[in-house]
């Protein structure tokens, strides 16, 4: 028998799954030559954020694995960093993307934040 709690839990995991897909699409829009500089900015936003409690442990673990393997500047690394940074510091992410003149990505992030 499926309980209310089970349904809630399923909804949460679906939301996370959808969000992951959205972030994957976002990172695919970022030109490879900007991966390093954006990765650096996002890491800084995440590590200096006061909103630690918004970090999902699954995302944190992906970031740590990527850092351990020195691949935070890859597309997979960026996907996790984008997800974490947008959850922790959404407004600052928009500012950073604007600074890097990634207008189309900024617009997509704003859309994501509205939904």
């Amino acid at each position: 028998m499926v309980t209310v709690k089970d349904k809630e839990s399923t909804n949460v995991s679906n939301r996370k799954g959808r969000i992951n897909m959205d972030y994957r699409k976002l990172s695919e829009m970022i030109p490879a030559e900007k991966w390093a500089v954006l990765s650096d900015k996002l890491i800084d936003l995440i590590l200096t954020s006061k909103n630690d409690d918004r970090m999902p442990s699954q995302v944190a673990n992906v970031i740590l694995r990527q850092w351990q393997n020195e691949s935070l500047k890859s597309e997979t690394g960026l996907t996790a960093l984008l997800q974490a940074a947008i959850l922790l510091e959404p407004e600052k992410v928009v500012v950073s993307l604007n600074e890097l003149q990634m207008t189309n990505v900024t617009e997509q992030v704003k859309e994501l934040l509205k939904s």
Binding site: I43, L47, D52, M55, S57, A60, N61, I63, L64, W67
Partner: peptide, 12 residues
């Protein structure tokens, strides 16, 4: 006092 993910990032 810092969450584990910050400490592990810095540890690496």
């Amino acid at each position: 006092r810092e969450p584990y993910w910050k400490i592990i990032y810095y540890a690496i």
